[in-house]
Write a protein that binds this DNA or RNA. Structure first.
Length: 318
DNA sequence: CTCGATCCCTGGACGC
DNA sequence: TGCGTCCAGGGATCGA
């Protein structure tokens, strides 16, 4: 599942493989994950992929056309890989795998294919102010944020630290795996409130998060299900996970049993001894009863049907 | 402000 | 073997 290191891996691969190429044409399959499919079909042909960057968990394909200088990169294709998405360069003779939803022809005869079985990925063509506006919705880049800025965002909130790490408007790029791993390394319980973290804890957390992200990038990310880089190789960081997916196994630091609890709607893996729980953690108030009950999952009822709101990059006001 | 619940989606794991 | 069911999870939205 692509988080910052996986997206960085793919972006670097694409920078080497497709930067500089022009897109003669675009072919769309299913489009329900595209903000404005018409814009992609209309605007992409004839543009050049100037460079490929990572922005949080997004990839930015910076585009130019003939009349623009490469310095004026006011157009971009934003691609979010969701959980199962990937952008893969391929020869046209390479068989098209199932769930290939977008094909960008390239001027060297190859294709860039967007494949995403679950279609949790997102794609949008944005230009000018809309592009700028979209990018400002996101928080700081984890690899470069200063300890001061990080502490300010964390300590200024009563939300739980796990939720803050996952919140893309606080930090951009951190997902469930690297949140759990960095909290374990920094010995901070996921349910601690941001405002309750001491400055040295906030510093430690950021330091460990950066180290983990760098190491994971070095190892081309974590391949949990079927993540592969641009050349088809799996990442290796999953072999270094200390808590993620290890519930029931022994803590590699103290030998206690790794536990699991839902925090911020996501499974959180932690060591109950190394990462001391805040007061009241693991309990919640049951509405109307005035009782406390263990928070361990009461599984949800069967869902009802509901109209599907079309996903938008920008909060639509029209 | 912060929370949980719900929805999107499909493949893989698991139970019978 | 072949069903059905549950689950994973990033992110938007909505109501509490």
């Amino acid at each position: 599942m692509p988080e910052l290191p996986e997206v960085e891996t793919v972006a670097r691969g694409l920078q080497l493989s497709v930067a500089g190429r022009t897109i003669p044409s675009v072919t769309l399959g299913k489009t329900d994950f595209i903000d404005d499919p018409g814009a992609v079909e209309r605007e992409l042909p004839g543009t050049r992929i100037e460079r490929v960057e990572r922005y949080g968990k997004f990839m930015l394909l910076r585009l130019t056309n003939d009349s623009e200088s490469a310095e004026n990169l006011q157009r971009a294709l934003l691609v979010h890989l969701g959980m199962t998405g990937n952008l893969v360069p391929a020869a046209t003779t390479t068989p098209v795998v199932k769930h290939t939803h977008v094909t960008f022809a390239l001027d060297d005869g190859r294709e860039l294919r967007f494949v995403d079985p679950r279609r949790f990925g997102r794609m949008a063509y944005l230009a000018g102010e809309a592009l700028q506006e979209e990018l400002t919705r996101f928080g700081a880049e984890p690899l470069t944020v200063t300890p001061d800025a990080f502490a300010k965002r964390i300590q200024g909130s009563n939300a739980r630290i796990k939720a803050l790490l996952l919140n893309q408007s606080v930090l951009r790029g951190v997902g469930n795996i690297y949140a759990d791993e960095s909290l374990w390394k920094a010995k901070i319980h996921p349910a601690r409130k941001g405002s309750q973290l001491k400055r040295d804890e906030s510093n430690r957390l950021l330091r460990e998060l950066k180290k983990i992200l760098h190491k994971a990038i070095e190892l081309r990310g974590s391949s949990i299900s079927d993540f592969v880089d641009t050349e088809g190789y799996a990442g290796e960081y999953q072999q270094h996970h200390k808590v993620y997916g290890r519930d029931g196994e022994k803590c590699l630091r103290c030998g206690s049993k790794i536990k699991w609890m839902p925090v911020a709607g996501r499974s959180s893996h932690y060591c109950p001894v190394c990462q001391r729980a805040p007061r009241g953690a693991g309990k919640r108030r049951v509405a109307g009863k005035g009782q406390w009950r263990a928070k361990i999952s009461t599984k949800t009822e069967p869902r009802r049907q509901k109209a599907k709101p079309k996903w938008r990059f920008l909060t639509s006001k029209a």
